[in-house]
């Protein structure tokens, strides 16, 4: 999830925590690459470290979205097209997880259906070089 604060008592990174939870629960992952990007900018970590650390075989769905940049932080607003750094993370995620169901979140300042649909279809350009659900 997108986050804006870090706690003094935190003992692990978010991806370490996520991996621990999904291993113990033996469940799939809904991987939101926009959230990962937003948090990476707010907490100064490399977002690819996060994406590369997630067990690819557990990724069942990927979310993409737009966000808003402010002077000192980034906010997960779902009111813009997907930005290039997020597409790059998406590309990496499907390189690892293979073809995966993908949802574009756009639930504020919503443009025409055609525009939202065009944005969602951009995801197809990253699928050509990947095989079906093969983890890397």
């Amino acid at each position: 999830m997108s986050s804006y604060a870090e706690y003094h008592v935190s003992q692990m990174t978010e991806w370490e925590f996520l991996n621990e939870v999904v291993e113990q629960a033996d469940c799939g992952i809904l991987l939101d690459v926009n959230n990962i990007y937003v948090s990476s900018q707010n907490h100064s970590f490399d977002p690819f470290t996060y994406v590369n650390s997630v067990p690819a075989e557990r990724v069942a769905q990927i979310h993409i979205a737009g966000h808003s940049k402010f002077k000192k932080y980034i906010l997960d607003t779902h009111d813009h097209p997907v930005l290039d750094p997020v597409w790059k993370l998406y590309e990496r995620a499907i390189q690892r997880a293979g073809h995966t169901a993908t949802l574009l979140e756009w639930d504020d300042s919503i443009p025409s259906f055609e525009e939202v649909h065009r944005e969602a279809l951009k995801a197809n350009r990253f699928l050509a070089d990947t095989t079906l659900a093969v983890a890397v």
Partner: peptide, 22 residues
Amino acid sequence: ARFIKPNDRLTSFERLEIYNRQ
């Protein structure tokens, strides 16, 4: 400040305020 770390751009107050406002 008791709970939240500041970073190079935001104080603990400012980071908590993002959540409060949103």
